Computed example of a mutant assay.
Amino acid sequence: MPTFQRARSEEQRELRRRAILDTTAAMLDETPVGEVSLNELSRRVGLAKSNVLRYFESREAILLELLDRAWKQWADDLPALLDREIAADAPVGERAERLVDVLVRSLEGRRVLCDLFSAQAGVLERNVSAEVAGRWKRTALGNVDAMAALLRARLPELGDAAVVFTAQVVMMVGAVWTHARPSAAMLDAYRADPALAAYRLDFAPALRDVLTTLLTGTLARTATA
């Protein structure tokens, strides 16, 4: 466990911030968002909890920064995947189907990102100041705009609706992720009643169905606008 002396320069403060973020990211690799605590983070990073809160106003503020980091990494990785899978001269239906497939497959291995998306509105945006909330919302909107441009370049038929569609994708990822991870009690209920078990969601197929329906409807609306 590292130990730190009091940060006296901007460079030292930035090193502390980075250590806190990197330590929290490592914790997220081991445990769900809801189980990440400031007490354990403080112990791992080698700072008192009060000192951690000098750099970030709350646990949620830390997690929002990590959500931004993971979101940007996802967006950085998408162009190569999209270019490999989507032929520019393919029919719109084929391009739409492949776009959804790329989005779903690109998210299957990003457990932390999906977990953070699922916690964004209900948890992460709650225990923060108006300043942090506003800064985060501007960042999130920038991420949506950047991703919308990526998708619109491969599916120009989306037009201006690409931004709304992208924002809806993020919301659907969080919602499907939550429902695809039932509680222990619900798992017991599924085991006890096979009729209920039929309604258990598998993340990738469920997300593919939802995004296909969403994209099909969006393209239909833009075609008649």
Rank of each mutant, 00 (worst) to 15 (best):
A75S: 14
I86E: 03
M171C: 12
V33S: 08
A133K: 12
C114L: 07
G217S: 04
R221W: 15
A180S: 02
R126N: 14
A88G: 14
A7N: 05
L99C: 12
L67V: 04
G122L: 06
A175W: 13
A87G: 08
V164M: 15
F117Y: 15
Y199K: 15
E85S: 13
G159K: 01
M172F: 08
P156E: 04
R59P: 15
G93D: 08
L116W: 09
R69F: 14
R191Y: 02
E65W: 09
V176A: 04
L66T: 07
P2L: 07
A70C: 09
V144L: 07
L151I: 15
R13S: 02
V36I: 04
E35M: 08
L15A: 00
V123E: 15
V112I: 11
K137A: 13
C114K: 09
L63Q: 12
L196T: 13
D22G: 05
L187W: 03
P79N: 03
S37M: 06
G142M: 05
R17H: 02
C114T: 05
T24Q: 13
L113E: 06
R126Y: 07
L63G: 06
A80S: 13
I20V: 03
L64S: 08
L214F: 05
R18H: 01
L53R: 13
E60I: 10
L141W: 11
L107T: 07
T222V: 15
L67G: 11
L207Y: 00
Y55F: 05
L124A: 05
M147D: 15
Y199G: 15
A88L: 14
A133N: 08
N127R: 13
R98S: 11
H179A: 14
E35V: 04
N127M: 08
A180G: 00
H179I: 06
W71M: 09
E65Q: 11
A96K: 05
Q168E: 14
R135T: 08
G93L: 03
E108G: 14
R152T: 07
A195Y: 08
E131C: 01
A133W: 06
A119Y: 03
T139I: 14
A162S: 09
E125Q: 12
A146R: 04
V128A: 12
A61P: 08
G159C: 00
L103G: 01
W136K: 07
A61D: 10
P182V: 01
G34L: 10
A197D: 11
L158V: 12
F117N: 04
R69P: 08
G174R: 05
F56Q: 00
G93K: 04
R59M: 10
Q73H: 10
E14T: 03
P194F: 00
E11K: 00
N39W: 10
T224S: 14
R18P: 00
T23D: 06
L47M: 15
